[in-house]
Computed example of a mutant assay.
Amino acid sequence: MVPFAGYSMPVQYKSGLMAEHQHTRQAAGLFDVSHMGQLKLIGADAAAALESLMPVDVQGLAEGKQRYGLLLNDEGGVIDDLMFFNQGNDTWFLIVNGACKLTDIAHIETHIGNRCQIVTLPTQGLLALQGPQAVTALSRLVPGVEKLVFMSGASFAWNGAELFITRSGYTGEDGFEISVPGDHTEALARALLAQPEVKPIGLGARNSLRLEAGLCLYGNDIDSTTTPPEAALNWAIQKVRRTGGERAGGFPGAAKVLAQIDNPASLTKKRVGLIAKERVPVREPAVLENLDGQHVGHVTSGLLSPTLNQPIALAYVQPEYAQPGTEVFAMVRGKPVAMVVSPTPFLPPRYHRG
């Protein structure tokens, strides 16, 4: 157990990180992520208000659907990344990172608190059930969840508790995130762990799973000094927010972010994936050099991939080194380790799209 964001969190259970990682890839792993922040925005202007803080299409998101979002500062840097969901009836459900939640809520209240009702949910638990057999295990307890597809969700009932379940996660696998009242969280966790497919998974395997999936960790791979184009997150900025029309721009840092999208040559760094040519783990914040020994970037997340049995990493490099196939050298204990720029995700995702 380790302290994290004011909570005591499990790094690993008895079987260990590698076994937990493989179990999630092969069956179903249960993560207690109740440290994450949960809140609702309510009101007729809530969608437009939330959209004013992010470069993503909020107003066009259909009821019952979820989307990835980015809170930006005035310089276009990422304050936090989050998931938001259209629950209908002018209600939007948000999940933000645990270490950022108090700052996020204060930011949202300061900027749009006069435009919608902001309801924080500090007593809600959050469980993530991930892996190819997650649907089998969860549907025994909560019939109907099997009808959900990736990035959709709905309300369900279990033993008198109202659950809000989305088919999404942070592992690259099919799976679910379950918002549950705090006084029912342990009972639901134990009921899930009683299923033959399910084992508990700690923070260590959560990190290795998300890295194989090529997903950013806030504070490592994105932060308030990196913009979405630098972080290779242009895909998260829908066309309606980029060009023409009344909803283009209008978010914090828009001038800088849109200029970077329009002129990629203006970037001074870019996030990439790396795979090592030899079996030497490369961890953050390893310096990256070119063949001439010049500094060209640094690693932001890195480890030995349990699935690929090769060292993988996310890193920022100068744009001329960002093309797939480019070779750079990570400095590990003073020795260069050859790494090749590779597309992410490192493993094909297995989301259930229907």
Rank of each mutant, 00 (worst) to 15 (best):
residue 3 P to L: 11
residue 3 P to H: 03
residue 4 F to N: 04
residue 5 A to S: 14
residue 5 A to P: 02
residue 6 G to L: 02
residue 18 M to R: 15
residue 27 A to V: 00
residue 40 K to S: 11
residue 46 A to E: 07
residue 48 A to T: 15
residue 51 E to S: 06
residue 63 E to F: 00
residue 71 L to E: 07
residue 83 M to D: 10
residue 85 F to C: 13
residue 85 F to Q: 06
residue 86 N to H: 14
residue 87 Q to D: 15
residue 91 T to D: 08
residue 96 V to C: 14
residue 103 T to H: 09
residue 105 I to M: 11
residue 119 V to S: 11
residue 122 P to N: 11
residue 125 G to C: 09
residue 133 Q to V: 00
residue 135 V to S: 10
residue 141 L to I: 10
residue 145 V to Y: 03
residue 150 F to E: 07
residue 152 S to C: 10
residue 154 A to C: 08
residue 156 F to R: 12
residue 158 W to V: 10
residue 160 G to C: 10
residue 163 L to A: 09
residue 167 R to P: 01
residue 168 S to F: 01
residue 175 G to Y: 01
residue 175 G to D: 09
residue 178 I to D: 02
residue 179 S to H: 10
residue 180 V to Q: 06
residue 180 V to L: 04
residue 189 A to E: 12
residue 192 L to G: 07
residue 200 P to T: 09
residue 207 N to E: 13
residue 211 L to A: 03
residue 212 E to K: 00
residue 220 N to S: 13
residue 222 I to H: 03
residue 226 T to H: 14
residue 229 P to D: 07
residue 230 E to F: 00
residue 230 E to S: 02
residue 234 N to L: 11
residue 235 W to Y: 14
residue 236 A to F: 06
residue 236 A to P: 02
residue 237 I to E: 01
residue 242 R to Y: 03
residue 242 R to I: 12
residue 246 E to V: 08
residue 248 A to N: 05
residue 272 V to L: 04
residue 274 L to N: 01
residue 276 A to M: 04
residue 279 R to I: 13
residue 281 P to L: 03
residue 287 V to W: 01
residue 288 L to N: 03
residue 317 V to W: 01
residue 320 E to A: 13
residue 337 V to D: 05
residue 341 V to M: 08
residue 352 H to M: 10
residue 353 R to I: 05
